[in-house]
């Protein structure tokens, strides 16, 4: 897997990843609602590219995101090029509904279950919102998970960060006071 590359405001390509910090999600579904709102104009978890999986009785909550793999099994499996590498956003696998035959090869090819099928049958595929993911914007800081002497900054279930920053957050998260 390689990380998506997005363009920074100055036009310089920056490598950033959409990542999930395990165990931090609170299950508020804001990511699903923001995703479906910004893509479909409707707030509906069933129209969201990101999904929050919950087994509430066991306290299990984890989001499923698209990793924009490279090579991307979904892109490789698509017979009609409905899934393709974005030309203006290097590293992002995009989806063109007009070319989709609904063969669902991509759904089967994705090892993470990251390609969703809407109630009406269309494919829902993360496009990283052009480099500013709405799901990350609404995902909020959890002070419970701040490591000791945390200098500030968001520790949220979702982050869209450069690889070095992803490593730093994950390292620090492991330092927090051991909870149960």
């Amino acid at each position: 897997m390689a990380a998506p590359v997005v363009l920074s405001p100055s036009g310089v390509p920056v490598q950033k990843d959409l990542i999930v910090l395990q165990g931090v999600c609170v299950g508020c579904q804001l990511c699903e609602l923001a995703c479906s709102l910004t893509h479909e104009g409707i707030m509906n978890p069933y129209l969201s590219r990101i999904r929050v999986n919950q087994i509430r009785e066991e306290g299990i909550i984890e989001p499923t995101i698209c990793h924009h793999c490279n090579p991307a099994p979904c892109e490789q499996s698509c017979p009609t090029k409905a899934l393709f590498w974005a030309s203006n956003l290097p590293g992002v696998v995009m989806f063109d509904e007009g070319k989709c035959t609904r063969c669902y090869n991509c759904v089967h090819a994705c090892p993470f279950g990251s390609i969703q099928i809407a109630p009406q049958g269309q494919i829902l595929k993360c496009d990283l919102c052009g480099g500013n993911p709405a799901c990350v914007t609404v995902c909020q800081d959890r002070p419970e998970f701040h490591p000791p002497h945390w200098p500030g900054g968001k520790v949220a279930a979702l982050a869209f960060v450069e690889p070095a920053e992803a490593t730093r957050i994950k390292r620090l998260l492991n330092l927090r006071n051991p909870q149960k």
Partner: peptide
């Protein structure tokens, strides 16, 4: 406590 949880959708 193990983890925080939102009691309802859309709660920040």
């Amino acid at each position: 406590k193990i983890r925080p949880i939102a009691c309802s959708p859309g709660c920040s």
